[in-house]
Design a protein around this nucleic acid. Structure first.
Lengths: 261, 261
DNA sequence: CACTATTTGTCCGTATGTATG
DNA sequence: TCATACATACGGACAAATAGT
């Protein structure tokens, strides 16, 4: 009998190991299993498939399956006992799902205060082609790129930012970005943003975003692209925000003039 | 001298290899380089850093750097010649990304004019529980429900609307909805909307939406929920919009006060 | 023409990690 | 647990093509 495996993985996933990436088999397998435990697909206390079952289902050797399970045990996501099998010890948080929308709105109103920003990367780089053109840069001119993640008070990350900025003299410091509004820092650098154009859309989560926002690759993400202009009309900043829609709704109040429904 | 490396990668990225992830070093390096080529950060014809430079910058052996470059050559992203070095052969497409966006914006500006609305359903119904509560309705009070689809001039549908409205005396007529702005009809019915609260999120397309917007079930959809209030502060209308993100971006210009980034 | 510096190509030996039966 | 095969990664050494002096 094939246990829960068929309920947890698609046929495609079962034969997905050994993709083009040379990542070890045991690690690919470990990743798949770990995700299913973390997202609650395999509940606390559930008995995992046996090494033999996994090996057959994924078409690998038993030792490879064992290695994957050992990695899970090392992280204390599961407990392994000889004769008993492998059981999930990780507690999945039922997640206060959607919670009343009002809760969501309150969170948003107090955003600057009750959230924390973590800077993942910061530096001067040559931007990708399309951005380079937009910012009016030549061949190998550089711009400031900052990658950040914003989390709620409870630590759950809900937004991923990538920004490209030109014209900064002093640039951003790590501390500035984690404690202050980026626009204030830009103002100190000599230019003030007077106009903002932004547009929103929905896209499938790419890997780098999914990883940071606790999502699966391909899940819907709310994407905001914001372009900031100085008084002279020069584009100085492009910001790409990706929001986990379960943890963040973009809310606004609008004057009636704008209305088209 | 360290070539273009410092312009292409941040310090963090340069030391990002060596991670505990068991993915081979050469493959991690190959991935970083490939992305920079594909997104146009390293333009066509540019000479890549030498194996030696890469090895030093990333703190790996020359053989590892070479392997990464060989992988790029195998995909014909670069060309390698002994004595000459490694040059980018991949042509970065200026990518029409920018064009469609402006097209998108123009489309949006002239929305009321250049789009057509088709009414799928119209009638008085008892709303679902949560909506009933929000609108302050009792047990089997009914509300006006209208389902519409909006299409561009070329006939491609991009938006799907479901609205629930209370307090209408004469109600909506089919013709009204297809030719006029819904708010004008509401005004004639005796109340004027003075405040709007709306929030946006991203959700997987449900079947009824996907069918109307030429999408597949589960693809990311931009979802707008709008609540309309009268001067007295009474909620009189709830609107659920679903947008096909390939055909519609929600665009806005914002005053600086709202900024949080 | 040779001489040189640069850069890639090839090979060696070794150590470690991965995957199988 | 063991033996085996293969891939990865390192340092080093040398050969071959290229470009400039």
């Amino acid at each position: 009998m094939d246990f829960i495996i068929d309920k947890l993985f698609t046929q495609h996933e079962l034969s997905s190991l050994r993709g083009e990436a040379p990542t070890p088999l045991y690690y690919q397998m470990y990743t798949l299993l770990k995700n299913r435990i973390l997202d609650g697909s395999i509940a606390h206390g559930t008995q995992m498939p046996t090494e033999q079952q996994l090996a057959e289902a994924f078409n690998v050797s038993r030792i490879t399956a064992k290695r994957a399970m050992d990695e899970l045990a090392a992280e204390e996501l599961v407990e392994r006992r000889r004769g008993k099998g492998t059981h999930v010890t990780h507690h999945y948080d039922p997640e206060p799902v959607h919670a009343p929308l009002t809760g969501m709105l309150e969170k948003l109103a107090s955003m600057g205060r009750d959230t924390k920003v973590r800077v993942l990367d910061i530096g001067m780089l040559v931007p990708p082609g399309d951005i380079r053109v937009e910012l009016g840069l030549d061949g190998d001119d550089k711009a400031h790129r900052v990658i950040r993640v914003r989390s709620a008070e409870d630590g759950e990350p809900f937004a991923h930012y990538i920004s490209w900025t030109v014209g900064l003299e002093r640039g951003f410091s790590m501390k500035d970005l984690e404690t202050r509004v980026r626009y204030d820092v830009m103002k100190e650098n000599g230019f003030e943003v007077t106009r903002i154009d932004q547009s929103m859309t929905a896209v499938p989560a790419q890997e780098f975003v999914a990883n940071e926002l606790d999502m699966k690759v391909g899940e819907p993400v709310l994407k905001l692209t914001r372009r900031s202009y100085t008084e002279a009309g020069r584009l100085v900043d492009i910001l790409y925000c990706h929001y986990n829609p379960k943890r963040f709704h973009y809310r606004m109040s609008i004057s009636m003039d704008d209305y088209r429904g």
